[in-house]
Nucleic acid binder design. Structure first.
Length: 830
RNA sequence: AGGGGAGUGGCGGAACCGGCAGACGCACGGGACUUAAAAUCCUGAGUCCGCAAGGACGUGCGGGUUCGAAUCCCGCCUCCCCUACCA
């Protein structure tokens, strides 16, 4: 390849730039050599090291760290990483002390499944996968401070995850409960919700049933109100906040007590419509409700038991999606409607969830669709108690769920819904049979997994002392070696097999005791990793609170929508606990959050192995380079939108980079550039700066740089002033090429800390602008006016144009609208 | 069912606060270079009619407000995402 030797010469760091070569000897853009050179340079110079406590403004720019899967990186990863890297590099050039770290969410199911299949220890496959991910990510030239790299499965990290868990324990936020899990009898294992598809196991398609097991729970509901309220302070998209609000699902209403007839038993129900109490014509309990067996009449017992058993076998999906028809059975018991004093039947039905509210409802079939359907199925009474207009009853045949005015409600008749709610709630309270209540859709967090590859619980079960935490100075409790990673046949976690590990002594009394054999879910490590990045090598604490006070909050957090609810909610919850414990000084961890949109395959479908439409970033880097991949992913469209991949389109940004390289390989003049070029440059600075600040419009920023190139590339001699600006604008986007360009311009220091160019507002405006001239709203001509020209100048310029005069055709000008520097619209009389 | 988002050339997308629709790029047509091709460079292009000058139409569909609407309002249609019997 001709010219290669010249290129090779330039690859020595600090080598003098070649100057004044003729066009015939122009060097090729060798992305592989340039990128390897600068990646080495950055590492050697510790260019991206974040300095704890450095005076001046800081910025914490974070990516959602990946699970290092065996499949390696896919093109979705670099999308968010490139966006955050652009912002991180930009902020560094603006003088901020930037913390931009990367690590590994390295506990998880795939490594464990792989271990079950191949016998490879998860620690080993995880180590290999991390090595692959690190190599792939480093090949893209992201400005991470690699000295802060962490992995959640590393013992030094596990230690502090367990330590933080014990802080939750101390604060009474951990408890044990009997809750249903997904149990697959065929596989002899417990499955995560994600592993259950349509009631069948993802692997093998075996039926999955719900089975109660003792589980560790975290009391996240205690923080529901704060998790909801503090959303207000965050710079997150409204849609994301809405998702979190919906997930927390706060609803206000009343709790009402119903006396069971002939028994010393009460049924508590929660309702958001206490105003419909007079229309409650029956009760429905969840099949799992504690009272069901007590109240069931002897002659109904057999049917009730059969229904309970059937419900227990159903997966959540069977109980919802497949339930086109509502099912239920009559218990034989009756309760008293406290408002009407009437006797109403008590049913059980699996459309009532044991886990929400009180696990029982008062059914108002006239005003609730679900109750209506149930009543129709079983021929139960429907009584209208809300009139839409205060005069007539609602249309029969369907539930009227809107608000209106009370009817058939005794003394309350005629009250509007909102007022009735208040009065009936007070009425119930006076009689001690009800009260105002708030319910959340959010449930406490089922925190234990019957798995191997996760953090063991630092808890010991002692026959004498109960559950006792492992002393902090004995952490971490590390995973034992086990002969088999599957759960035991009794459904116990695989850790139960490690009998030597399980047997221990009680930290409190010293007697024989057993370790808890559950492990924590994947979320545990990702709940606080952003805190560990702040102080990753601390072996006396999870992090130094003083350093946390310096770096927090995370100023910008970028990641996929798949974590819009769970991860973000869990991390916010832990953070608030740490706030209460005085470990952190901010109420919220992530101030600004941006979700990148998914990248689809070339066929417009989600990338997946089965569709065979997966793009491997390694191939793109090999062929076009990291800078081209970064640029292409940003050029595809706004960061947050979903966009299809188009391999051919990469050639566009690749050509751009080649032309940029060519531009910087030419002769450079120290003469100031012509006025027009300088104006173009400053307009570009302004546009690119605004686009980067938006953390979204990187595509238009690149367009503007392309326009700048198109504007200056035709000139034979290049002006230093323009090139110096261009290189710095390009630096966050295509950092390798920008460094090379910077060096070609004769700079000895890297471009990474070069000051970001600032625009001169006066130069951002053209001296002369083209405006549109419309006649009766139709575009007839384009004329030029001086920048800042007044209305009169616009009018004169418009009326001087022959095409405009022809369109006017001698008619009278009735009105003339001038929008300065934009258009003139001429309206004619009739 | 509910909630959120989106419909603009052959394609990805641009258009500030209501003011020249289609920037930038891909693909495509024409030309230059070449024995030839690739690459590169120049150049054309929303659609329709027209040799041309020019004209008509045009941002999912139907209305409305306005001198002027991709943008604002009302009513529909389609697609994507999330939640999914939450009382």
């Amino acid at each position: 390849m001709p010219g290669f030797s010249v290129l090779a010469n330039s690859l020595v760091p600090g080598a003098d730039r070649m100057s004044g070569h003729a066009d015939s000897s122009r060097r090729a853009y060798d992305h592989a050599a340039i990128e390897a050179k600068w990646q080495r340079y950055w590492l050697e110079h510790r260019t991206f090291r974040a300095e704890d406590g450095k005076p001046g403004p800081k910025a914490y720019v974070l990516d959602m760290f990946p699970y290092p899967s065996g499949a390696g990186l896919h093109v979705g990863h670099p999308e968010g990483y490139t966006a955050s890297d652009i912002v991180a590099r930009y902020l560094r050039m603006r003088g901020r002390n930037v913390l931009h770290p990367m690590g590994w969410d390295s506990f998880g199911l795939p490594a464990e499944q792989y271990a079950i299949q191949t016998g490879t220890h998860p620690a080993e496959s995880t180590r290999q996968n991390i090595a692959t991910f690190r190599r792939q990510i480093q090949a893209l030239g992201f400005s991470y401070d690699w000295e802060r790299e962490i992995a959640t499965s590393h013992p030094a990290y596990v230690r502090w995850t367990q330590w933080l868990f014990l802080q939750l324990w101390r604060r009474g936020l951990v408890y044990e409960a009997e809750v249903p899990v997904n149990w697959c009898p065929a596989l002899g294992t417990v499955l995560a919700n994600e592993e259950v598809i349509d009631g069948l196991s993802e692997r093998g398609g075996h039926p999955v049933i719900r089975r109660p097991m003792r589980q560790w729970m975290l009391r996240i509901t205690a923080y529901a109100e704060r998790l909801l309220a503090d959303l207000d302070e965050l710079d997150w998209s409204e849609s994301l906040k809405t998702m979190q609000q919906n997930w927390i699902g706060r609803s206000e209403g009343a709790q009402v007590t119903f006396q069971v007839e002939g028994l010393d038993a009460m049924v508590e129900v929660f309702t958001t419509r206490p105003d419909t109490l007079f229309g409650a014509t029956y009760l429905v309990l969840a099949p799992e409700h504690a009272l069901v067996r007590r109240i069931a009449a002897p002659e109904r017992r057999q049917e009730v038991e059969a229904y309970i058993a059937a419900a227990a076998c159903k997966s959540d999906l069977d109980r919802t999606e497949l339930a086109k028809q509502k099912t239920g059975v009559f218990t034989g018991a009756y309760a008293i409607n406290p408002a009407s004093g009437e006797s109403i039947p008590v049913w059980i039905g699996d459309y009532i969830l044991a886990s929400y509210g009180t696990g029982a409802i008062m059914a108002v079939p006239a005003h609730d669709e679900r109750d209506h359907e149930f009543a129709r199925t079983f021929g139960l009474e429907v009584r209208c108690v809300v009139s839409p207009d205060g005069a007539r009853a609602p249309e029969p045949g369907a539930a009227f769920t809107g608000e209106g005015f009370a009817m058939n409600s005794g003394a309350f008749d005629g009250l509007p819904t909102a007022e009735f709610k208040k009065q009936i709630t007070a009425w119930l309270e006076e009689r001690g049979i009800g009260r105002a209540a708030v319910n959340y859709r959010l449930r406490d967090w089922l925190f234990s997994r019957q798995r191997y590859w996760g953090e063991p619980f630092p808890l010991v079960r002692c026959p004498a002392c109960g559950v006792v935490p492992v002393p902090e100075n004995e952490l971490p409790v590390l995973l034992p070696e086990v002969p088999d990673y599957r759960p035991t046949s009794e459904g116990e976690p695989p850790l139960a097999r490690a009998s030597g590990w399980v047997a221990t002594s009680c930290p409190a009394c010293g007697g024989a005791a057993e370790r808890d054999t559950n492990t924590m879910p994947n979320w545990a490590g990702s709940c606080w990793y952003y805190l560990r990045f702040i102080d990753p090598r601390n072996d006396a604490a999870p992090f130094d609170p003083a350093k946390a006070a310096y770096w927090l909050p995370v100023d910008l957090y970028i990641g996929g929508t798949e974590h819009a609810v769970l991860h973000l909610l869990y991390a916010r919850f832990w953070h608030k606990v740490f706030y209460d414990a005085g470990l952190v000084t901010t109420k919220e961890p992530f101030q600004r959050l941006v979700n990148q949109g998914m990248i689809l395959g070339e066929d417009g479908e989600k990338m997946s192995k089965s569709r065979g439409n997966i793009i491997n970033p390694d191939d793109v880097v090999a062929e076009h380079g990291a800078d081209a991949l970064r640029l292409y992913e940003m050029f595809m469209g706004p960061l947050e939108s979903v966009k299809p991949w188009n391999t051919r389109a990469i050639s566009g940004v690749r050509r751009f980079l080649e032309r940029v390289f060519d531009l910087f390989s030419r002769q450079v003049s120290d003469e100031p550039p012509p006025e027009a070029e300088r104006r173009l440059t400053h307009r570009t600075i302004k546009a690119v700066t605004e686009d980067v600040e938006s953390v979204s419009q990187f595509n238009t920023a690149i367009s503007r740089m392309m326009e700048l190139l198109n504007g200056v590339a035709g000139n034979g001699v290049q002006h230093r002033e323009t090139l110096e600006t261009f290189a710095r604008l390009l630096a966050p986007f295509a950092p390798h090429l920008a460094e090379e360009a910077w060096q070609l311009l004769g700079h000895g220091d890297g471009i990474a800390r070069a000051p970001w160019p600032l625009c001169d507002e006066d130069l951002c405006r053209e001296s002369e602008v083209e405006i549109a001239v419309q006649v009766m709203g139709k575009l007839r001509a384009r004329v030029k006016v001086a920048a800042g020209a007044g209305e009169e100048a616009h009018r004169a310029a418009a009326l001087a144009d022959p095409r405009v005069l022809r369109a006017i055709g001698g008619r009278e000008v009735a009105k003339l609208i001038v929008v300065k520097e934009r258009l003139v619209n001429i309206l004619l009389g009739r």
